[in-house]
Design a protein around this nucleic acid. Structure first.
Lengths: 215, 215
DNA sequence: TGTACATCAGTGAACGCGCGTTCACTGATGTAC
DNA sequence: TGTACATCAGTGAACGCGCGTTCACTGATGTAC
């Protein structure tokens, strides 16, 4: 009788529905404070239904974090891939990519919803070794990704200050994570994009020649 | 019989003891996951004793956050005040201050323990309006503090790129918050100081004249 | 095409445990006269 | 200096509620012969 789903909609994937509801709640009030009961009520299933899809609450956390990491990686692939198509120069591609990232995060209806990795970082002891290792790998993956891009830039442009490539690689995720915290606390809408644009200016100043001497 | 406190120590202030224990636990696993029971066991008092000092769990959160904000403000006053004593030029004072901040955070035994404001940001709906407003004021306070410092710098040095003073002011807390998240996830020791040093390089590049023309 | 069995995607009652909070009470210290 | 009372800093038993998890069961769909 419940026909909230139109005939054109794909069959509602209960597992995905549970994860969507859970992610929203976890980002709002934390993992421990999000009860299975409230999830199943919102998803219109029974308690038992939840445990059919996830063996326990930790399995839900794992799935949430895994999905988030995959989505973020796909987003970075997409944005910086597109940026590179637009400009073959690695520095300009990076600057375009950061601009695209800022614009994308600006266009989200209610700002960035938050990062489940940061949420998990502040609820560390709740999770098993596997979850912590997944998070670590994700952050190291982003470090390596951006580090490689900065290395490519450094082959073409002489940096004006000595480079700490790991720190520079970490800076993208770091600035975004920090800005998300500020945005959540302030309740403003453009904090994240403004911080990314600051990072963009830094990259520009760090590599671009003082007065267009080289180019 | 329990004489862990030497005769030279001031009488153990139970309220402070509760807060120290609670802060550590909250930063490790979140507010909801930290039970009053575990706090009172660690503090060697009874449940009732806890409620003598805090009317409920939210009052503990409020006290924790208030204390954290005060401590952070005192730290900033101290560090950037000292930096200004060392160099009257606002840009150099800022650069010295950031260096001192990075060094200080490097010297902490186990890295930065975490920020209770960020922890609260990811457990938002657990807290009342008062707590959220306190956090907002703290972040805006830091924005204003550093914004004023950057304004002073901009009076003396022409920035090489257009300034977004609010975003620049936010960047100090933002970079630190983000770096704390990375450091927690990575389990490394120098992530926070490395990120602050990146911010320092940005400030240097943004304001310092290209080739010492002005000075 | 019909029947038997297996799998999928759940239902809903029941469990026991741990949580935040209340409350009557207590013993030590401080203050007034 | 002695006595009466108030305040401080707790104790510890009891409360009821909500939580994560288990489990026997079920009805719809898929597959084998």
């Amino acid at each position: 009788m419940d026909s909230r789903y139109s005939s054109m909609t794909v069959k509602p994937d209960t597992r995905t529905l549970i994860m969507d509801i859970a992610e929203k709640a976890v980002l709002e009030k934390g993992f421990e404070a999000t009860s299975i009961d409230e999830i199943v009520v919102a998803a219109h299933i029974s308690r038992g239904g939840f445990f059919y899809h996830f063996k326990d609450k930790n399995a839900l956390a794992r799935a949430l974090i895994e999905r988030y990491i995959d989505a973020e990686n796909a987003l970075f692939d997409d944005i910086f891939g597109r940026a590179r198509e637009l400009n073959d120069d690695p520095l300009h591609a990076m600057l375009i990519g950061l601009k695209l990232l800022a614009e994308m995060l600006d266009d989200l209806p209610n700002g960035h919803p938050g990062c489940v990795i940061a949420a998990a970082a502040y609820q560390d002891r709740l999770f098993d070794r596997g979850v912590r290792e997944m998070n670590r790998r994700a952050i190291l993956g982003w470090r390596a990704r951006f580090r490689a891009m900065f290395e490519e830039i450094a082959k073409v442009y002489t940096p004006r200050e000595p480079l700490d490539l790991n720190a520079l690689g970490d800076m993208v995720s770091g600035v975004v994570e920090g800005a998300i915290v500020l945005q959540r606390v302030l309740g403003e809408r453009q904090t994240v994009s403004a911080q990314i644009m600051q990072l963009r200016t830094y990259v520009k100043l760090l590599f671009a020649p003082p007065m267009q001497m080289d180019h």
